[in-house]
């Protein structure tokens, strides 16, 4: 390799490493702002101020969904296994919404610790399998862990 080419190769390496290092610093500084949602435990730990809009993510607690028969209002608990936050919502829920399913609710906490959502999104995990496999897993007593990563 000629000296000129060696110099250019070094320049290429400097560009890639330099931009990488700069980005790593920026990303570390912005880390908290890159989160799309916070968990119920975060809500408890931070004592999130009422009326600040946040996204709350977790699983819909089993047996917690209560629908109002006369309107679109629905109430449920969002859990991460350690803490639960009660959520109320009025509107159409996504098809994947069900108990045990991951959801992300966008809204705010009121003074009593209840979360008022104006948008509820369903979050599915990375597992894909045919229904028969799921049924045999359930029959064997090993339903796959609904993972929240």
């Amino acid at each position: 390799m000629t000296p000129t080419r060696r110099k250019r190769l070094a320049l290429v390496a400097v560009i890639v490493l330099g931009v990488g290092a700069a980005t790593a610093v920026a990303i570390t500084a912005l880390n908290d702002n890159m989160l799309y949602f916070v968990s119920p435990s975060d809500v408890y730990a931070d004592a999130a101020p009422p009326d600040r809009r946040i996204r709350l993510g977790g699983l819909v607690a089993a047996g917690s969904v209560k629908r109002d028969p006369d309107s679109l209002a629905v109430a449920f608990m969002v859990t991460d296994g350690r803490h639960e936050v009660p959520v109320s919502f009025e509107g159409i829920l996504p098809d994947l919404f069900r108990e045990g399913q991951g959801v992300i609710a966008h809204g705010h906490l009121d003074g009593t610790g209840r979360f008022h959502a104006d948008e509820v999104l369903a979050r599915h995990d990375e597992t894909y399998m045919p229904p028969e496999v799921m049924r045999s897993l359930e029959a064997a007593g090993h339903p796959p862990e609904a993972s929240e990563s």
Binding site: L35, Y36, F37, I104, D125, Y128, S149
Partner: peptide, 13 residues
């Protein structure tokens, strides 16, 4: 991105 931060997008299958 799906490992470092919480996302609506699923993790890697």
């Amino acid at each position: 991105s799906v490992e470092w931060w919480t996302t609506l997008h699923q993790g890697s299958t």
